[in-house]
Amino acid sequence: MTWFSDETLSFLRDLSNNNSRDWFQENKSRYEAHVKNAAAQFADALNRKLATTYATDVTTRIFRINRDLRFAKDKTPYNTHIHIGFSDGQTGASWMVGLQTDHLVVGFGVFAFERETLDHWRETVAGPQGEILQGLHAQAISDGLRISEPDLKRIPLAWEADHPQGELLRRKGIVWWNDHVPQNEIMGPDAPETIAGELAAMEPLRNWMKLALGPPT
């Protein structure tokens, strides 16, 4: 079994300084052992932990290391991070883990709601459930979490410009992030259990989504 380790970070940092196909091919065995296989091992274990803890179906997505260069000005071919998403069957949201060369971030939420869900979100947060979510946001920020920024500059025209839940109405998605997880927590065989514990801080948002938004459409 291969888990994330200092060798993982060493590879990512070296890749940052040598982001070329030739270098990658020369170091492919390092990538496969310390990134690809380690990510698969970690993701499988965390998937099982989340599925058991929350009694839900969990679908894992490990994002490709190859960058999509079709519309990118930066033509370096590889990502120098590891991003993994765990889709929650009960809410349609995802738990997220991002390992960068210099830090670790975990989160939960939805980057962009589907059209019908976005309409439901707006109707919901415009009412009493929006007030509840505002309170949860305030507590999350007080606890050191970061809330994703609203997508729109203005409130949609269906609602008054000074609506008390205007910040929520300007959103097309919602994600809570924890930027303060020590990087070493993702290392070794205890990492899935440890990271699952860090993701527990996202439970207020998940519980709100289950109650207020219902199952994914």
Rank of each mutant, 00 (worst) to 15 (best):
P156K: 13
S148F: 07
D102C: 02
A191L: 00
H103Q: 12
M187D: 05
P189V: 11
I84W: 15
D143A: 14
F71M: 06
Y54H: 06
G85A: 15
N37C: 09
G197L: 04
T76S: 15
A55W: 05
A212E: 00
T91Y: 12
V35Q: 08
E116A: 10
L169Q: 01
P215V: 07
D14Y: 12
K75A: 13
I65A: 15
W23Q: 04
R206C: 04
D44R: 10
D88V: 01
H137L: 13
K172P: 00
N79W: 11
F63K: 02
R171C: 02
D74S: 10
A33N: 15
E193P: 09
R67I: 09
I195G: 09
W121T: 01
E32H: 07
W95A: 01
G166Y: 04
G144D: 12
Q129T: 12
S16V: 02
A126D: 01
T101S: 09
D74Q: 07
W121Y: 03
R170G: 04
L169D: 03
Q100D: 04
F63S: 01
A126K: 00
T59C: 07
G214W: 10
Y31K: 08
T117D: 05
N47Y: 09
F86S: 14
M1T: 14
T8P: 11
A40D: 07
Q134R: 15
T59H: 14
V106P: 01
S20K: 14
N66K: 11
D6V: 12
T194L: 15
H34P: 08
L9S: 10
L50Q: 08
Q183C: 05
T2F: 15
D22C: 00
L169P: 00
W176P: 12
A191F: 00
L46N: 03
V175Q: 09
A55D: 11
V106F: 02
H163V: 00
L69R: 02
L211N: 12
H83P: 03
E114W: 08
H83D: 12
H180I: 04
G107P: 12
Q134T: 13
A138T: 08
K49M: 04
D190L: 13
Q41S: 07
A51S: 13
E167L: 00
W23C: 02
D6R: 15
M209L: 07
Y54Q: 02
R170V: 02
K36C: 07
Y54P: 03
W208I: 00
L199V: 06
T217C: 06
D68K: 11
P156S: 11
A51I: 05
E123V: 10
W208V: 01
R13W: 00
L15M: 04
I141N: 08
I195Q: 10
Q139W: 04
W23P: 06
V58T: 14
R13S: 01
H180C: 10
R115P: 08
I65Q: 15
T60H: 14
S148H: 10
S10K: 15
V125T: 08
H137Q: 13
Q25E: 05
